[in-house]
Computed example of a mutant assay.
Amino acid sequence: MSPDFSKATLRRAALASRQALPPAEVAHRSQQLCEQLFQHFPVAQWRWLHVFLPIVGKHEPDTWRVIHRIWAESLVVRLAAPVMQPDRRSLKHYELTPATPLHKNHWGIAEPEAAAATEVPAAAFDAVLVPLLAVDAAGHRVGYGGGYYDRFLAQCRPGTQFIGLSVLDEPLIDHIADMLPTDVPLTACITPGGVRRF
């Protein structure tokens, strides 16, 4: 186990580790994450699953593998993805179907076209797949630092599963030194090597 680290230190180290992965390795690890999700979580029983759409250039987990499997197996669970709002502080969430038109925002992240999709309230989700760079033993995560997901997760109903996805399979951090009271912990984290529950 690692000693205490600040978010900034962990963010730099994780970004460097992730960028060092060849694209083929990111794809392989993303497939492992998909298989672990379906093996260890009741995906077919959920009504709504929130998925982030990956920033390919940052070697994020390829959540399209999860999305396409759900569609291919015609599961009951419905999907929604986030759309950054003009205030650049908040997210809204829109249903994602095979017919949903997408566009890229100014960060290069694919988003549903809000005018052509149905908005889904945060309280609807049974589970949320959460992007992260690092996680500690209490389930606290390090993201990119904007706080978007913490504000979103705080709006979800009690009992919603917050499941982090990481293509990195590194030792768990003991404790992130500069957590805030507004930081919302995960309920689980999936890495290529397994599932950690908090």
Score class of each variant (00 low, 15 high):
Val56Pro: 06
Gln155Pro: 09
Leu132Glu: 14
Phe125Pro: 05
Ala154Trp: 12
Phe5Met: 09
Leu180Tyr: 05
Pro42Asp: 05
Gln31Ser: 06
Lys7His: 01
Pro61His: 00
Gly145His: 12
Ala72Asn: 09
His140Leu: 14
Thr187Gln: 14
Leu10Pro: 02
Trp46Pro: 02
Thr100Arg: 11
Asp183Lys: 01
Asp178Asn: 12
Leu172Pro: 07
Arg197Pro: 03
Asp62Thr: 05
Met179Ser: 12
Pro158Val: 12
Lys92Gly: 15
Asp126Val: 06
Leu79Trp: 07
Gln32Lys: 03
Ala110Phe: 03
Lys92Val: 15
Pro192Leu: 08
Pro98Asn: 07
Asp87Gln: 13
Arg197Val: 01
Pro23Val: 00
Leu153Phe: 05
Gln19Asn: 11
Pro82Ala: 15
Gly57Asn: 07
Asp87Met: 12
Leu129Val: 02
Pro192Lys: 10
Phe162Glu: 14
Ala44His: 01
Gly145Cys: 09
Pro121Asp: 03
Glu95Leu: 09
Leu33Glu: 02
Pro101Trp: 07
Pro192Ser: 09
Arg151Ala: 09
Ala123Lys: 10
Phe5Gly: 05
Val76Lys: 15
Trp71Val: 14
Ala137Phe: 06
Gln39Asp: 09
His40Cys: 15
Thr63Glu: 03
Glu35Ser: 08
Leu10Tyr: 00
Pro3Ala: 05
Pro3Val: 00
Thr191Lys: 03
Asp183His: 11
Arg151His: 05
Leu102Met: 13
Glu113Leu: 11
Ile163Tyr: 14
His50Ile: 00
Glu73Ile: 02
Tyr144Lys: 04
Gly57Ile: 03
Leu21Thr: 00
Asp62Ala: 04
Leu96Asn: 12
Trp64Ala: 14
Ala116Gln: 14
His68Gly: 10
Asp169Ala: 05
Phe38Glu: 06
Val76Asp: 10
Gln19Trp: 08
Gln161Met: 13
Pro158Ser: 15
Val77Asn: 12
Leu33Arg: 04
Val43Ser: 02
Val26Ile: 02
Cys189Phe: 03
Ile173Val: 14
Gly108Val: 02
Thr191Pro: 03
Ala115Cys: 13
Gly146Arg: 13
Gly145Ile: 03
Gly139Val: 10
Pro23Ile: 00
Gly164Phe: 04
Leu102Lys: 04
Leu132Trp: 09
Arg11Met: 06
Val128Asp: 08
Ala20Trp: 02
Ala81Gly: 10
Leu102Thr: 02
Gln19Val: 03
Leu33Ala: 02
Ala110Pro: 09
Leu168Cys: 14
Arg69Pro: 00
Cys189Val: 08
Gly147Arg: 14
Pro61Asp: 03
Asp126His: 11
Ala27Met: 00
Pro158Lys: 13
Ile176Phe: 04
Trp71Met: 04
Cys156Arg: 13
Ala123Asn: 10
Glu119Asn: 11
Asn105Lys: 09
Arg151Val: 05
Leu10Cys: 00
Val128Ala: 06
Arg88Thr: 06
Glu95His: 15
Pro171Val: 15
Pro61Gly: 06
Ala72Gly: 01
Gln36Lys: 10
Met179Ile: 13
Gln161Ile: 07
Arg88Gln: 12
Tyr148Lys: 14
Ala13Ser: 11
Arg141Lys: 15
Pro98Trp: 08
